[in-house]
Design a protein around this nucleic acid. Sequence first.
DNA 1: GTCTATACTTCGATAGAC
DNA 2: GTCTATCGAAGTATAGAC
Lengths: 197, 197
Amino acid sequence: MDTVVQTRRLGLEGSQTRARFIDAAEEVLRDEGLPALTARQVAAKAGLKTQLLYYYFRTMDDLILALVRRVNERRLVRFEAALAAPEPLRALWELNSDPTGAALASELSSIATHREAIRAEIVRSAENFRALQIEAVSRLLVPDGSRSAAGIVMIAVALARMIVSEAALGLTDGHAEALVIVEQMLDRLSTPKQTAP
Amino acid sequence: MDTVVQTRRLGLEGSQTRARFIDAAEEVLRDEGLPALTARQVAAKAGLKTQLLYYYFRTMDDLILALVRRVNERRLVRFEAALAAPEPLRALWELNSDPTGAALASELSSIATHREAIRAEIVRSAENFRALQIEAVSRLLVPDGSRSAAGIVMIAVALARMIVSEAALGLTDGHAEALVIVEQMLDRLSTPKQTAP
DNA sequence: GTCTATACTTCGATAGAC
DNA sequence: GTCTATCGAAGTATAGAC
């Protein structure tokens, strides 16, 4: 039996209207948070009718999934750009310190925790991105043997994310001291001169 | 003119029923996420009538504020217990690595980002807790002068939080390598023997 | 303190005309 | 593709009886 379960509605992929809904969803999620990510509020932000959203997305979960995929694609593009920068390690740090990306990542992580349908997609792309970053950092490090690129990536990503999200709340205690450590590390690791034996 | 704006309802502070609502709110927030934190679902989890919630809390924001305060008080108690442990630095790391606390902290941080009324309370207690942790770590460190307790606290807290929240999603890439670094640090910092001059 | 009853809004989603 | 019209459930919150 052919599983043609989807009997009634349509939906197009390359549509510009569809993209407007995804844009609006991203904006709502970033600015108002997860409880505001509703069909009505997304449509209002897009300047379109609520019911039209259901022509392009079967359910709200489908819209969120489309948003997740677009966020991930954009992150990969920016990652490649960072690797091509004059100081790639510093560019990676700045990529991970982007406030817009951090706010979205935080909300998406919250979605992944509680929505089975979204979790797989988020985890899969997070694993992919983590592997790419570890590989890149491993190539960029001064090869002094004792350092684990994976550990450094974990610490840097975690620290960047926390600093950005706390700063958005107006909480900055300890940030300056942590950034001093990061700067020292970036200076040391980015300059491939010989260190003392 | 006396501002006796609150004309109609009552509400008691030490009530046991009130505590049950807060318990239920914590459980709902941790297990189902922020969009599920509604009067109906909290009351259902508590096994009480929805309307009764409004006898104890004027609005949902009031309930969330009560939850925030209780989470903060409990965290301070656990912090004091960690300081009294045989290996305080390790106990602090484990406190920050508690999955229940991390899940709640993540959701509360999301609330703080988008709700003005809650933000102040969360930021205030986060600043207080950060200061206490930095002070404690500063006292516990081997005094080799070159280390910033504030920076170490930032890195440790950020790393613990990310590891726990990612592990809850089934994402563990890089965790083992990061934990090796933490263990090395804990071993080195917790043992107050003289290091090389 | 707890209950019933209720007002009004917003939610996701669908049917069917144009 | 976009529209009008609509459904039933769930949202916050209040009034008033017991």
